[in-house]
Amino acid sequence: MKQLLAILVDGSVYASWLFIISAGLTLIYGVMRILNMSHGSFYALGAYSGAAMVGWYFSTGSVPWFSFVALIGAALVAGITVGLLVERGLLRFMYGRDEVVMILVTYAVLLIMEDAIKLAFGVEPYFAYQPYTMLGRSKFMGLSFANYDFMLIGVSILIGLALWYGLNRTQNGKLLRVVIHDREIAGALGINVSKIFTITFLIGAGIGALAGALTAPGLSVVPGMGIEVIVLAFAVVVIGGLGSISGALVGALIVGMARATAVHLYPEVELFVIYAVMGLVLAFRPQGLFAVANARKI
């Protein structure tokens, strides 16, 4: 029972982390049909910005609990600001191009941002452990778990609910769904597609940066972390179906539980099992489990 509990908790925490990262990636693809390779760099930017702000905040001797506001606020400001520069300064000139071209363009942005992050923050690791330790630990059945990890699960649930409500219960969300279904008809009906694209990209970049900030207290922030995480995010969205928020959730749960099971039972296949699951899903359902249906144009 202890091992089962450990697998469930570790799998849920890892799945929550994966979902937060993948939600922004799949949202951007669903609306803009851009497989955003630079998403990993927004994750890294959020981690570096949040860690740097937390380090500065605690050096001032301020109230410790407000470090969470500093952590999240710095990441969101950095992610949205850089996201606006990327979308308005580059991507808007590329809309309508082939998806392969957009992959190459966003990959170039990834490389540029990785070097820009090194120039801005250096190559030494950053540590922002204070928020992680402040929440303490809880014990269940003789096992100790960090309360910060449970908070991460709660944040992923809130993000999922916010995205669902925004897409299905608000006027702007309904306009967004029209653009997803057919951007040409949406433009003909008077919907400002360019504005929708900008807002979508900023939301996706902000979620990516938020994921990095929430990850920073649990590990050391080092160069190259964005490139590592984008591969896992792609695996999740491919399993769930590109462009589907619910698919990203299911994909994250599948990958999270598969990895946790491997770590506790067969640690030597930890990395392999993620891609084995992806290959198995694609073998029987190449479009992913919850792929968004595309309207056939005549």
Rank of each mutant, 00 (worst) to 15 (best):
G61W: 00
R137Q: 10
Q130G: 04
I207C: 06
A116F: 10
A248Y: 00
G226Q: 06
T200M: 05
V179I: 10
G243Q: 13
I203M: 13
G136M: 09
L45E: 03
V86K: 04
E184Q: 14
Q171F: 06
V155H: 00
I153G: 15
D98W: 00
I196W: 01
L242N: 05
P217S: 10
L189C: 15
P131L: 02
L104Q: 07
L85D: 06
G89D: 10
I28F: 02
Y126I: 14
H264T: 12
G154P: 09
L135W: 07
W164A: 09
S138K: 05
I203P: 02
L189Q: 15
V193A: 08
R259S: 08
S22E: 10
A188E: 06
A146Q: 11
K174T: 13
L5M: 14
T106M: 04
L163A: 09
A188Y: 04
V63C: 08
L210A: 07
A262C: 02
M257D: 00
S138V: 08
I21S: 02
L167H: 13
L18P: 03
G256W: 01
S12M: 11
A188P: 00
A235H: 01
S246N: 12
L289F: 02
G173I: 07
P286N: 02
A74Q: 06
V77E: 03
G50H: 03
R169D: 13
A252I: 08
L85G: 14
L104A: 11
I103G: 14
A235V: 09
M94F: 09
A235T: 14
A47V: 12
I227P: 00
L35A: 11
L232F: 01
L76D: 01
F93D: 04
A108V: 08
V9Y: 06
R137D: 11
A120H: 06
G251N: 03
L35D: 08
A23K: 07
Y129H: 12
I199G: 05
E114N: 05
M225T: 04
S194R: 15
T60S: 05
A120Y: 10
L18S: 01
V263L: 12
L232A: 03
Y107H: 09
S62F: 11
T198I: 14
L210E: 04
V263S: 09
N147A: 05
L253I: 13
L8M: 14
I274Q: 05
F234V: 05
Y107E: 08
P125A: 11
G89M: 12
M257K: 00
V281M: 09
L4F: 12
A293K: 15
P223C: 09
A186S: 15
L163V: 14
K297C: 05
S38Y: 01
I239D: 04
S38L: 03
A162W: 09
G256M: 03
V86H: 02
P64C: 13
Y107K: 00
L249V: 14
A70P: 01
I72C: 02
L135S: 12
Y14T: 15
L152Y: 10
I80A: 08
T60E: 02
G11V: 10
E184S: 13
E87A: 06
R92E: 12
L219A: 12
T170I: 04
V54G: 05
V231Q: 10
G247E: 01
T60Q: 10
L265V: 12
V31L: 12
A128K: 08
K174Y: 03
K297P: 02
K297T: 15
A260N: 08
L163G: 05
I203S: 08
A235F: 00
A188R: 12
Y266I: 15
H264D: 05
